Simulated assay, not measured.
Amino acid sequence: MISRRTILKSGGAAAAFAMVGTPSILRAADTVKVGLSIPITGLQAILGETLLNCYKLAAAELNAANGIGGRQVELFIEDNQTTTKGSIDKARKLLNEDK
């Protein structure tokens, strides 16, 4: 069995850091997609509105600072209507349609 200590001793960590730090890997996509399934309507709409404003503010700040690894942040917002069925449907839409 290979342990973390064995990998660190063999220099595997340096190779892993070199691969992760490569700019071509960081810029594999044009944007960073963030999918949000939040309650904009329904019983918890007040919480969803706060969440939505926080995510929009964070995305705006990240994009103003040249994004994440040079890629802009793109938000995909779905209203789950504070229901279990709505949450499942919106999560499936975010995964299957919005990728």
Rank of each mutant, 00 (worst) to 15 (best):
L52W: 08
I2D: 06
N66L: 00
K99G: 11
G70A: 04
N63S: 00
N63P: 01
G11C: 01
G48K: 15
Q81P: 06
L52I: 12
A18D: 11
K93D: 07
L51D: 02
N53V: 09
L94F: 05
T84R: 05
S24Q: 14
T31S: 05
T22C: 02
P23A: 04
K85L: 02
G69M: 04
V73G: 01
I77S: 12
L43K: 07
D79F: 14
I46P: 05
D30M: 03
R92I: 08
S87V: 09
M19T: 13
E97P: 05
T22W: 00
A60C: 03
L75V: 15
P39R: 06
A13V: 11
N80K: 05
I77E: 10
I88P: 02
A29K: 11
L95N: 14
I40F: 03
L51Q: 11
L8D: 08
K56N: 04
G70I: 06
L94Q: 05
T31Y: 13
I77A: 14
T84Y: 03
I25K: 09
G67P: 08
Y55H: 15
L95C: 15
T41H: 01
S24I: 04
G70E: 08
L36K: 01
G42N: 06
A91N: 03
L51S: 02
S37A: 14
I68G: 12
R71Q: 05
G11W: 04
T84L: 09
K93T: 09
K85R: 04
A59K: 07
V73F: 04
S24V: 01
L94C: 07
Y55A: 14
I68S: 10
L8Q: 10
G67H: 03
L57Q: 14
K85E: 02
K56G: 00
A29W: 02
N63M: 09
L57V: 15
E97D: 15
